[in-house]
Design a protein around this nucleic acid. Structure first.
Length: 308
DNA sequence: TATACGTGGCA
DNA sequence: TTGCCAAGTAT
Protein backbone atom coordinates (compact mmCIF):
# COMPACT_ATOMS: atom_id res chain seq x y z
CA UNK A 1 0.00 0.00 0.00
CA UNK A 2 2.91 2.32 0.70
CA UNK A 3 3.95 1.74 -2.88
CA UNK A 4 0.55 2.90 -4.07
CA UNK A 5 0.88 6.02 -1.94
CA UNK A 6 4.35 6.78 -3.20
CA UNK A 7 3.46 6.39 -6.86
CA UNK A 8 0.21 8.38 -6.76
CA UNK A 9 1.50 11.22 -4.61
CA UNK A 10 4.69 11.27 -6.66
CA UNK A 11 2.65 11.59 -9.84
CA UNK A 12 0.62 14.36 -8.19
CA UNK A 13 3.74 16.29 -7.16
CA UNK A 14 4.89 16.30 -10.76
CA UNK A 15 1.67 16.90 -12.68
CA UNK A 16 -0.83 18.64 -10.39
CA UNK A 17 -2.69 21.58 -11.89
CA UNK A 18 -1.80 24.97 -10.46
CA UNK A 19 -5.20 25.92 -9.07
CA UNK A 20 -5.55 29.10 -6.95
CA UNK A 21 -7.37 27.35 -4.09
CA UNK A 22 -4.41 24.99 -3.81
CA UNK A 23 -2.07 27.90 -3.07
CA UNK A 24 -0.76 27.54 0.50
CA UNK A 25 -1.68 31.20 1.02
CA UNK A 26 -5.29 30.65 -0.01
CA UNK A 27 -7.64 31.36 2.89
CA UNK A 28 -10.02 28.77 4.35
CA UNK A 29 -12.82 30.94 3.00
CA UNK A 30 -11.29 30.67 -0.47
CA UNK A 31 -11.17 26.91 -0.10
CA UNK A 32 -14.78 26.75 1.10
CA UNK A 33 -16.00 28.90 -1.80
CA UNK A 34 -14.11 26.71 -4.26
CA UNK A 35 -15.54 23.49 -2.83
CA UNK A 36 -19.12 24.75 -3.06
CA UNK A 37 -18.59 26.04 -6.59
CA UNK A 38 -16.97 22.80 -7.68
CA UNK A 39 -19.95 20.68 -6.67
CA UNK A 40 -21.10 19.12 -9.95
CA UNK A 41 -19.28 21.85 -11.85
CA UNK A 42 -16.06 21.62 -13.95
CA UNK A 43 -12.92 23.46 -12.81
CA UNK A 44 -12.61 25.58 -15.96
CA UNK A 45 -16.00 27.14 -15.39
CA UNK A 46 -15.38 27.78 -11.69
CA UNK A 47 -12.02 29.51 -12.11
CA UNK A 48 -13.14 32.99 -13.32
CA UNK A 49 -16.16 33.16 -11.00
CA UNK A 50 -14.07 32.14 -7.99
CA UNK A 51 -11.56 34.90 -8.78
CA UNK A 52 -14.35 37.50 -8.90
CA UNK A 53 -15.93 36.28 -5.69
CA UNK A 54 -12.70 36.32 -3.71
CA UNK A 55 -11.82 39.78 -4.97
CA UNK A 56 -15.24 41.15 -4.10
CA UNK A 57 -15.74 39.20 -0.88
CA UNK A 58 -12.30 38.34 0.59
CA UNK A 59 -13.83 37.15 3.87
CA UNK A 60 -17.18 35.69 5.02
CA UNK A 61 -18.11 38.98 6.70
CA UNK A 62 -17.85 40.81 3.37
CA UNK A 63 -20.44 38.55 1.78
CA UNK A 64 -22.66 38.43 4.85
CA UNK A 65 -23.26 42.20 4.69
CA UNK A 66 -24.69 41.91 1.16
CA UNK A 67 -28.18 40.83 0.11
CA UNK A 68 -28.45 37.14 -0.76
CA UNK A 69 -29.52 38.17 -4.25
CA UNK A 70 -26.07 39.63 -4.90
CA UNK A 71 -24.54 36.22 -4.26
CA UNK A 72 -27.02 34.65 -6.67
CA UNK A 73 -26.38 37.29 -9.33
CA UNK A 74 -22.62 36.91 -9.00
CA UNK A 75 -23.00 33.17 -9.31
CA UNK A 76 -23.53 33.78 -13.00
CA UNK A 77 -24.14 30.67 -15.04
CA UNK A 78 -22.36 28.20 -12.78
CA UNK A 79 -25.58 26.28 -12.32
CA UNK A 80 -27.48 25.09 -9.23
CA UNK A 81 -27.94 28.71 -7.98
CA UNK A 82 -29.24 27.46 -4.63
CA UNK A 83 -25.57 26.89 -3.88
CA UNK A 84 -25.04 30.66 -3.98
CA UNK A 85 -27.91 31.13 -1.56
CA UNK A 86 -26.46 28.57 0.82
CA UNK A 87 -22.97 30.00 0.56
CA UNK A 88 -24.42 33.35 1.57
CA UNK A 89 -26.23 31.67 4.47
CA UNK A 90 -23.00 29.91 5.42
CA UNK A 91 -21.15 33.23 5.47
CA UNK A 92 -23.82 34.65 7.76
CA UNK A 93 -23.58 31.63 10.07
CA UNK A 94 -19.77 31.91 10.10
CA UNK A 95 -20.05 35.54 11.22
CA UNK A 96 -22.72 34.89 13.83
CA UNK A 97 -21.50 31.61 15.27
CA UNK A 98 -17.77 31.52 14.56
CA UNK A 99 -16.57 35.11 14.85
CA UNK A 100 -16.18 35.42 11.09
CA UNK A 101 -13.64 32.61 10.83
CA UNK A 102 -14.39 29.48 8.80
CA UNK A 103 -14.61 26.67 11.40
CA UNK A 104 -11.88 24.03 11.31
CA UNK A 105 -13.63 20.87 12.45
CA UNK A 106 -15.64 18.42 10.39
CA UNK A 107 -18.69 18.67 12.68
CA UNK A 108 -18.82 22.47 12.64
CA UNK A 109 -18.33 22.60 8.89
CA UNK A 110 -21.02 20.00 8.33
CA UNK A 111 -23.49 22.20 10.22
CA UNK A 112 -23.07 25.02 7.67
CA UNK A 113 -25.72 25.43 4.95
CA UNK A 114 -24.74 23.74 1.69
CA UNK A 115 -21.92 21.80 3.33
CA UNK A 116 -22.35 18.03 3.25
CA UNK A 117 -20.05 15.18 4.18
CA UNK A 118 -17.75 15.63 1.20
CA UNK A 119 -17.32 19.40 1.53
CA UNK A 120 -16.88 19.28 5.31
CA UNK A 121 -14.08 16.73 4.96
CA UNK A 122 -12.51 18.56 2.02
CA UNK A 123 -12.36 21.94 3.78
CA UNK A 124 -11.06 20.41 7.03
CA UNK A 125 -8.35 18.62 5.04
CA UNK A 126 -7.36 21.16 2.38
CA UNK A 127 -7.80 24.37 4.38
CA UNK A 128 -6.69 23.15 7.79
CA UNK A 129 -4.51 20.14 7.08
CA UNK A 130 -6.69 17.76 9.05
CA UNK A 131 -6.68 14.03 8.48
CA UNK A 132 -10.12 13.36 6.99
CA UNK A 133 -11.59 10.64 4.81
CA UNK A 134 -12.42 12.68 1.71
CA UNK A 135 -14.67 10.85 -0.71
CA UNK A 136 -15.88 12.49 -3.89
CA UNK A 137 -16.91 11.04 -7.23
CA UNK A 138 -13.30 11.02 -8.50
CA UNK A 139 -11.97 9.18 -5.47
CA UNK A 140 -14.85 6.71 -5.59
CA UNK A 141 -14.09 5.91 -9.23
CA UNK A 142 -10.37 5.45 -8.62
CA UNK A 143 -11.06 3.10 -5.71
CA UNK A 144 -13.66 1.21 -7.73
CA UNK A 145 -11.20 0.50 -10.51
CA UNK A 146 -7.89 0.29 -8.71
CA UNK A 147 -9.04 -1.78 -5.73
CA UNK A 148 -12.47 -3.24 -6.37
CA UNK A 149 -12.00 -3.95 -10.06
CA UNK A 150 -15.26 -2.44 -11.30
CA UNK A 151 -15.67 0.13 -14.05
CA UNK A 152 -17.75 2.52 -11.94
CA UNK A 153 -18.64 2.98 -8.28
CA UNK A 154 -22.16 2.14 -7.09
CA UNK A 155 -24.92 4.67 -7.85
CA UNK A 156 -24.85 5.85 -4.23
CA UNK A 157 -22.00 6.07 -1.73
CA UNK A 158 -21.91 2.92 0.43
CA UNK A 159 -20.56 2.22 3.89
CA UNK A 160 -18.13 -0.26 2.34
CA UNK A 161 -16.67 2.51 0.18
CA UNK A 162 -16.16 4.73 3.21
CA UNK A 163 -14.42 1.88 5.04
CA UNK A 164 -12.18 1.26 2.04
CA UNK A 165 -11.30 4.95 1.74
CA UNK A 166 -10.55 5.13 5.47
CA UNK A 167 -8.33 2.05 5.26
CA UNK A 168 -6.34 3.59 2.41
CA UNK A 169 -5.77 6.91 4.19
CA UNK A 170 -2.16 7.42 5.37
CA UNK A 171 -1.74 7.68 9.14
CA UNK A 172 0.35 10.83 8.94
CA UNK A 173 -1.69 14.02 8.78
CA UNK A 174 0.26 15.83 6.07
CA UNK A 175 0.55 12.65 4.02
CA UNK A 176 -3.21 12.09 4.27
CA UNK A 177 -3.91 15.56 2.85
CA UNK A 178 -1.59 14.92 -0.08
CA UNK A 179 -3.17 11.51 -0.64
CA UNK A 180 -6.70 12.92 -0.74
CA UNK A 181 -5.71 15.61 -3.22
CA UNK A 182 -3.66 13.21 -5.34
CA UNK A 183 -6.34 10.54 -5.70
CA UNK A 184 -8.91 13.19 -6.54
CA UNK A 185 -6.60 14.62 -9.20
CA UNK A 186 -5.92 11.17 -10.61
CA UNK A 187 -9.65 10.60 -10.99
CA UNK A 188 -10.16 13.99 -12.60
CA UNK A 189 -7.26 13.86 -15.05
CA UNK A 190 -6.43 10.20 -15.75
CA UNK A 191 -8.96 7.78 -14.30
CA UNK A 192 -11.86 9.59 -15.93
CA UNK A 193 -15.41 8.30 -16.28
CA UNK A 194 -15.26 8.04 -20.06
CA UNK A 195 -12.16 6.81 -21.88
CA UNK A 196 -9.68 6.74 -18.97
CA UNK A 197 -6.08 7.48 -19.91
CA UNK A 198 -4.66 4.25 -18.51
CA UNK A 199 -1.40 4.61 -20.45
CA UNK A 200 -0.62 7.69 -18.36
CA UNK A 201 -1.63 6.12 -15.05
CA UNK A 202 1.09 5.82 -12.38
CA UNK A 203 -0.56 2.69 -10.90
CA UNK A 204 -1.77 0.91 -14.03
CA UNK A 205 0.20 -2.22 -13.15
CA UNK A 206 -1.67 -2.44 -9.84
CA UNK A 207 -5.17 -1.77 -11.20
CA UNK A 208 -7.72 -4.51 -10.46
CA UNK A 209 -10.00 -3.31 -13.24
CA UNK A 210 -7.25 -3.43 -15.88
CA UNK A 211 -6.12 -6.83 -14.58
CA UNK A 212 -9.68 -8.10 -14.98
CA UNK A 213 -9.72 -7.01 -18.63
CA UNK A 214 -11.66 -3.75 -18.21
CA UNK A 215 -15.10 -5.27 -17.56
CA UNK A 216 -17.98 -2.93 -18.50
CA UNK A 217 -20.17 -1.25 -15.85
CA UNK A 218 -22.72 -3.55 -14.23
CA UNK A 219 -25.39 -0.88 -14.53
CA UNK A 220 -26.30 2.00 -16.84
CA UNK A 221 -26.07 5.40 -15.13
CA UNK A 222 -29.41 7.15 -15.17
CA UNK A 223 -29.34 10.19 -17.41
CA UNK A 224 -30.48 13.59 -16.26
CA UNK A 225 -33.53 14.76 -18.19
CA UNK A 226 -33.38 18.35 -19.32
CA UNK A 227 -35.44 19.34 -22.36
CA UNK A 228 -38.99 20.19 -21.40
CA UNK A 229 -38.36 19.84 -17.67
CA UNK A 230 -39.19 22.25 -14.87
CA UNK A 231 -35.47 22.63 -14.30
CA UNK A 232 -35.02 24.04 -17.77
CA UNK A 233 -37.78 26.57 -17.17
CA UNK A 234 -36.37 27.49 -13.75
CA UNK A 235 -33.00 28.05 -15.35
CA UNK A 236 -34.48 30.32 -18.00
CA UNK A 237 -36.42 32.31 -15.39
CA UNK A 238 -33.30 32.70 -13.25
CA UNK A 239 -31.40 34.02 -16.26
CA UNK A 240 -34.06 36.73 -16.59
CA UNK A 241 -33.96 37.63 -12.90
CA UNK A 242 -30.16 37.86 -12.89
CA UNK A 243 -30.33 40.44 -15.67
CA UNK A 244 -33.24 42.48 -14.34
CA UNK A 245 -32.54 45.70 -12.44
CA UNK A 246 -36.17 46.05 -11.37
CA UNK A 247 -38.89 43.53 -10.42
CA UNK A 248 -40.21 41.61 -13.43
CA UNK A 249 -44.02 41.61 -13.78
CA UNK A 250 -45.55 38.11 -13.99
CA UNK A 251 -46.99 38.88 -17.44
CA UNK A 252 -43.44 39.18 -18.75
CA UNK A 253 -42.90 35.48 -18.20
CA UNK A 254 -46.12 34.50 -19.92
CA UNK A 255 -46.16 36.90 -22.85
CA UNK A 256 -43.55 38.04 -25.31
CA UNK A 257 -42.15 41.52 -24.52
CA UNK A 258 -43.37 42.79 -27.87
CA UNK A 259 -46.94 42.14 -26.77
CA UNK A 260 -46.37 44.18 -23.63
CA UNK A 261 -44.53 47.02 -25.27
CA UNK A 262 -41.84 47.22 -22.58
CA UNK A 263 -39.50 45.17 -20.47
CA UNK A 264 -37.05 45.88 -17.63
CA UNK A 265 -33.64 46.94 -18.85
CA UNK A 266 -31.44 44.19 -20.21
CA UNK A 267 -33.79 41.24 -19.93
CA UNK A 268 -34.66 41.04 -23.62
CA UNK A 269 -32.31 38.22 -24.54
CA UNK A 270 -32.99 35.87 -21.59
CA UNK A 271 -36.71 36.64 -21.83
CA UNK A 272 -36.71 35.67 -25.49
CA UNK A 273 -34.89 32.45 -24.58
CA UNK A 274 -37.55 31.68 -21.98
CA UNK A 275 -40.35 32.24 -24.47
CA UNK A 276 -38.66 30.01 -27.03
CA UNK A 277 -39.13 27.14 -24.58
CA UNK A 278 -42.84 27.59 -25.20
CA UNK A 279 -43.62 25.94 -21.87
CA UNK A 280 -47.16 25.39 -20.65
CA UNK A 281 -48.56 28.11 -18.33
CA UNK A 282 -48.84 25.63 -15.46
CA UNK A 283 -45.22 24.63 -15.87
CA UNK A 284 -44.17 28.26 -15.72
CA UNK A 285 -46.26 28.69 -12.60
CA UNK A 286 -44.64 25.64 -11.08
CA UNK A 287 -41.17 27.01 -11.83
CA UNK A 288 -41.96 30.44 -10.36
CA UNK A 289 -43.56 28.94 -7.26
CA UNK A 290 -40.56 26.66 -6.83
CA UNK A 291 -38.13 29.57 -7.02
CA UNK A 292 -40.14 31.51 -4.42
CA UNK A 293 -40.27 28.44 -2.22
CA UNK A 294 -36.51 27.94 -2.51
CA UNK A 295 -35.81 31.58 -1.70
CA UNK A 296 -34.17 32.16 -5.06
CA UNK A 297 -36.81 34.75 -5.92
CA UNK A 298 -39.22 37.04 -4.09
CA UNK A 299 -42.12 39.26 -5.05
CA UNK A 300 -41.68 43.02 -4.73
CA UNK A 301 -43.94 45.72 -6.15
CA UNK A 302 -45.93 43.02 -7.93
CA UNK A 303 -42.93 41.60 -9.77
CA UNK A 304 -40.32 38.89 -9.33
CA UNK A 305 -36.77 39.69 -8.34
CA UNK A 306 -33.74 38.09 -6.70
CA UNK A 307 -33.92 38.13 -2.87
CA UNK A 308 -32.84 41.42 -1.30
C1' DT B 1 -33.31 5.45 -0.71
C1' DA B 2 -34.79 8.05 -4.69
C1' DT B 3 -35.45 12.41 -6.59
C1' DA B 4 -34.84 17.39 -7.65
C1' DC B 5 -31.68 20.62 -8.63
C1' DG B 6 -28.29 24.16 -13.82
C1' DT B 7 -25.10 24.53 -17.20
C1' DG B 8 -22.16 23.90 -21.15
C1' DG B 9 -18.43 21.26 -23.42
C1' DC B 10 -17.29 17.21 -25.60
C1' DA B 11 -17.60 12.55 -28.05
C1' DT C 1 -27.19 15.86 -32.99
C1' DT C 2 -28.11 13.55 -28.69
C1' DG C 3 -26.54 12.12 -24.45
C1' DC C 4 -23.06 11.93 -20.99
C1' DC C 5 -21.18 13.97 -17.10
C1' DA C 6 -18.55 17.54 -13.75
C1' DA C 7 -14.73 18.31 -6.34
C1' DG C 8 -22.87 16.99 -4.01
C1' DT C 9 -26.63 18.50 -0.92
C1' DA C 10 -31.15 18.48 0.95
C1' DT C 11 -35.35 16.32 1.50
Amino acid sequence: MDDLHRRITGWFAETARDLPWRDPDCSAWGVLVSEIMLQQTPVVRVLPVWEQWLERWPAPADLATEPAGEAVRSWGRLGYPRRALRLHAAATAIVQDHGGRVPDTYAELLALPGVGSYTAAAVAAFAYGRRETVVDTNIRRVHARLVTGTALPAPALTAAEMRLAASLLPDDGAASVRWNAAVMELGAMVCTARSPKCAACPVKDSCAWLAAGEPPPSYIPKGQAWHGTDRQVRGAVMAVLRQADTPVPPEMFHQAPADLGFAPEGVGVPLAALHRLNSAPEQLERALAGLLNDGLAEIHDGGYRLPA
